[in-house]
Every structure is written in structure tokens, then in C-alpha cells.
Design a binder for these strands. Structure first.
Lengths: 207, 207
DNA sequence: GATAAACTGTACACACCTGTTCGAGTTAAC
DNA sequence: GTTAACTCGAACAGGTGTGTACAGTTTATC
């Protein structure tokens, strides 16, 4: 075997900014944690009342193993929600909000749609376990982005301004969730959803 | 004693087209059944996972008494949902759908809003207990009414017809539920909701 | 290949919800 | 005022979910 040259760069991640473990986590442990989080995200997005047992089984892991990585159900849910928030922020940060407000909103809706559809009922699971203000904080980031764009569009005379901005944000989110539900019901396909969401939302925001 | 003249007309309601009880229900029993149904409607509309205990307590009745009137949780939920459906059908049947489609839709939305806001998450409680087709049947009636009106408006060139009617119905319902949620969140008041719903929905349906 | 970390299934304690039974107390109806 | 219907609380059985403890086995790591 080639004596593994320069393995220093590939050193196992310390990954402990606070805990200060002197031993790196084992590879399979990391893999399992990842599988659990992924499974929890998928399962909870479909059924916010799913049990730990279902999540563990979906992740291909024993229930006890799951508890080895997460103190409680609440801890797991919090972790999943935090990840979803981070993923959401990251995806939305990449959206170009400049230029024509209507076009910008179309791009923002396209990105938001995918997130809404993927995370589905996860927000429900979160609000059942986490304190309310923690959940509102989760929605605040994306909402702020939308609100900013709407305000710019209203000032430019592109969007109607005869109703509260906050309501317009709520209506927009409602349409997104409605579309996700419609897809799950088989009423429309996931492919055509973005266009329908965009057309409907733009109509609702235009005088 | 005055030999109880002509009591035939004021006879206690037989109320048994099928069961065939030979004895009329006692007054307090009727009162309690009513209180339970009302409490269940209110509680389940707010929290579809509410326990029988909560419902009984809200109704001011012992848990055992509740089970004396309803075989199981499922029976109670079914009864509540059936009542809501009947109430909905009745209220919507009174709406005048003739004349200008936009005006007619405004009237229909006004009526639907109150029902949506009152019954809230009751549909969730129903779909957890009742077979899916029974739930879809519940939504089908009102949806049919909306769809008919939309189709008439599309034919008249008043509503945009570049998207499926079913999607428009879904979007309309989504906006209604979104408004209800916004009221519960304190974002808007119940008073201003109808106007916002009407303006937003009409905008969404207009090219 | 030795070691320690991690995984597994089983089993237990605890809590909550559902549905039922029982006996005793209330109350509407005749 | 008698009777039967109704209500009540307590208590039980069965089910499910959560979280913990234990002992044996696998497996990554050195």
C-alpha cells in the first residue's frame, strides 16, 4: 500500500466548537446521524405526528441508536427544523431580487416553491414541540425577504398597495401551501405547480 | 287535575326515524348532547388532536357522560363533521350565484369565509378518523358550487381561463385558510378578513 | 489484530388516551 | 312523590409513545 501521503488535510473533522470532544466521531456514527436527520425530515414533512419508531425505521436504524444521538424527540425536531431553516436561507439568498419586481418575484416564488413542497408539514411538527417564538423566527427570514420585494414593487407601482403588506405575504404563503397540498392530492403535478403559483400570485398582487 | 287537554301536539319529539325508541329523551340529556357537540366543534376546530377529556371538560360534562351519548371518538367526530357539512350546505345554498360572476363570487366568498374560519382545523380531525372518501365528499359540495360559478365566469370572459379550474378552486380555498390562520396569528382582524379575501381572490382570478 | 466506540434487540417504567364497568347520587318526567 | 333516566367520579384494562438500562455483537480505527 502506498503509505498514504499527506493525510493531514483529510484529517477527521473535529466538529466540536463547544463540546470539545478529544476524540473524533466514528464514520458510521456520522453516517447514521445524517440518515436519521434525512429520514426525520422526510417523514415529518409528510406526517408531523410520526413517532420516533417510524423515523428510526425509515432511517434503517434502531430506536435506541436514535436516542443515542438525540436526547429527545424535541431535540430531533429542533435539529431538523434548524436544518430546514438553514437550507431555506441558503437557497433564497441565491435568488436575484433586483430588476423588475414582477420578474424578481417570479424567481423568488420558484425557489420558495421547491422548499415549501419539500418541507411540507414540517412546520406543523415544529410548532407542536418548539416554543411559538422559535417557529415564528423560522418563518421571519423568508417572510422578510418577500416583504422587502413587495414593498419595492408597491413603491414602483407594480403591485397593488390597497391592502397590508403582511397580508399579501400571508396570501402568498397560503397559495404555496395550497399548491403543495394540491400536488399531494394529485390534482396537479409537481412540474406544473411553479407556473401556476407564479401566475396566480402575480394576479393576486396586481390591481 | 285538569286532564291534560290536547297534549298531542306538544308531544315530545319522537326523533327516531330508524332506531324506533319508544321513550323520548330526557331534556337534560338533549341539552348535554348539544353542549358536547358544540364544544367538540369549537375545540376540534382549534386543535384536531384534542382528547375526549378536553372536549368533555369544555362541554362541562363528565367523560363517562360523553361516552354515554357517543360510542367512540370516531362517532363523535363524524357527528361533528356531518353537522358542519350540513351547516355549510345550508349557508351556501342561500347565496345568490346569479348576476355578474365577480359580484356572485364576492358573495360566495363572504359566506364561505365565515364557515372556514369557524370550522378551521375540523377537516384535519375528520381526515384522521374518517375514511378519506367521506372527507372528500364533505369538500365536494362547496367545491362544486365554486367550480360552477368559476366556469360560468370563465365562459363570460370575466375570469382568466389559462389555468385549470380545479387549481383555481384550490387556490381560493388556500387563500381562505390562509386568512383564517392570519386572523388566529393576530396579523389581521376577523372584520377586515372578508374584504381582503375578496380582493385577493378576485385579483388572482383576473387576467 | 486489539481496542473502544457504536449498533442491536429486549425489557422496563412512566405517562397519556381510549373505552368500559360499577355504585351512588341527581333530576327530569309522569 | 315515585320512578326511571341520567349523571358523576373512581377505577380498571388495553393500547401506544417516550425515554432509559442492560448485555451481546458488529465495526471503524489505530
Amino acid at each position: 500500500m502506498a503509505t498514504t501521503p499527506t493525510r493531514t488535510t483529510a484529517a477527521p473533522p473535529r466538529t466540536s466548537p463547544d463540546g470539545g470532544r478529544d476524540r473524533a466521531k466514528r464514520a458510521d456514527a456520522v453516517r447514521n446521524v445524517e440518515a436519521i436527520l434525512a429520514a426525520a425530515t422526510r417523514v415529518l414533512a409528510a406526517d408531523p405526528d410520526a413517532s420516533i419508531n417510524e423515523i428510526a425505521k425509515t432511517a434503517g436504524v434502531g430506536r435506541v441508536t436514535l436516542y443515542g444521538h438525540f436526547d429527545s424527540r424535541a431535540t430531533l425536531v429542533r435539529e431538523v427544523v434548524d436544518r430546514a431553516i438553514a437550507q431555506t436561507d441558503e437557497a433564497l439568498a441565491e435568488v436575484d431580487l433586483s430588476g423588475d419586481p414582477r420578474d424578481a418575484l417570479g424567481r423568488l416564488l420558484e425557489a420558495t416553491w421547491h422548499l415549501t413542497h419539500r418541507f411540507g408539514a414540517l412546520v406543523v411538527a415544529g410548532s407542536q414541540v418548539l416554543p411559538p417564538e422559535e417557529m415564528s423566527r423560522a418563518h421571519e427570514g423568508p417572510a422578510q425577504r418577500v416583504r422587502g420585494l413587495l414593498e419595492r414593487g408597491r413603491a414602483a407601482g407594480e403591485f397593488r398597495d390597497d391592502m397590508p403588506v403582511d397580508w399579501q405575504v400571508s396570501a402568498l404563503q397560503a397559495i404555496l401551501h395550497g399548491a403543495s397540498a394540491a400536488v399531494h392530492r394529485g390534482e396537479i403535478t409537481a412540474d406544473e405547480a411553479p407556473a401556476l403559483v407564479r401566475a396566480t400570485t402575480l394576479g393576486a398582487l396586481t390591481a
